[in-house]
Design a protein around this nucleic acid. Sequence first.
DNA 1: CTCCAGGTGATGG
DNA 2: CCATCACATGGA
Length: 299
Amino acid sequence: MRKFRTIELREALSLRKIADSGQCFRPGEIGDGVFRFISGNEVLELRQRGDCAVEVSCDAESWDKVWRTYFDLERDYSAIQRDIFESGDTLLAEATVHGDGIRVLRQEPFEMLVSFVLSQRKSIPAIRTAVRELAEAYGEATEAPSGETVFLFPKPEVLAGSSEESLRNLGLGYRAPYVLDAARRVADGRLDLDAVRDLPDEELFAELQSVHGVGKKVANCVMLFGYGRTERVPSDVWMQRIVSEGYQGVDPLIARKHAGILQQYLFYYALTHKERFIPRKARDENRKEKRRNESCDTN
DNA sequence: CTCCAGGTGATGG
DNA sequence: CCATCACATGGA
C-alpha cells in the first residue's frame, strides 16, 4: 500500500455513509477500513481518521483539483444543517444528525446518466453489480493506488459502439436499448453533456429526458449528482414512503433551499430504518390481492 | 420458490 | 391530466 497523507477537514466527512447513501454505485470499502472512489481517470483510496480527517493516497494537487470538488467540500453543510434544526422539522433533523458526514458528490454526468438509467427497478446492490460489470466490459483498465486493476467508467463512444444484444448479455434486460440510446446521443453530440451544464434547471431537465428511458426521477438524479443542482429532488419509492409515512402525505421539501441535499439525508435515513417507512398494512393487502388474483386465474 | 427493487413508456380512459 | 401494465433480472 502506498503511503497515505492526512487531510484535515472543516466539517464531517463520512466515507462509509457516502458510499452507502445510494448516490453512487462504485465507491466502497475495499478492506481494512480503506475506501476507494473513482472519478474520471482518477482513482482515490482513503481511510477515515475521525469525523473530520481522512488519510488519502493522492498528492496535494490531485486532492485540491479533483477530490475537494468531488466531495463538495467547498459547500457549507454546517449552515444547511443549522437551517434544518431551526426549521422545527424533527424527522428531518433526526435524519440530518444520523447522516452527518454525508456530502452530495459531484460525479460525472455521463456516469450518472447511465447508472441511473440502469437503476430503474433494481435494488442498490444489484445496481452496483450492473455498473461494475459494465465497467469491466467496456471501461479502460487502470492501476489503483493499492496496485489492483480497476476499470474506469466506460466512455460514451465505446458504449455507443456496443450492441443491444451484448448489453442484454450483461444482464441489463429491457434497459439495454435505453443505455445504448444514452451512449449514442452523447457520442454523436445530440446530447452535449458539457454544453447543457449552463442551461437553467427546467431546460436541462427537459434535455435529459430526451433520452429514451430517462424520466423525471432519473433526470433529477443526473441533475443533483452529476451537475450539482442541489434544488432538485429525485422522487423515488423511498421518498414517497417518507412523505406518506413520515409527513402525512405533505412534501416537506417544497420551497426548501438545497432540497436535494435535505433529500439525501432523508433518503439515507429511510434506507437505514426501512421498517419504519414500509407501511405494513399495504404490504399485507398486496399479498391478499395477489392470492385473490391467482385463485381467479385457476377458475 | 416468492417477492421486490432509487422507473419509464405505451396505452386507454 | 390520471390509472394501469409490461418490462428482465439479480438479490434477499
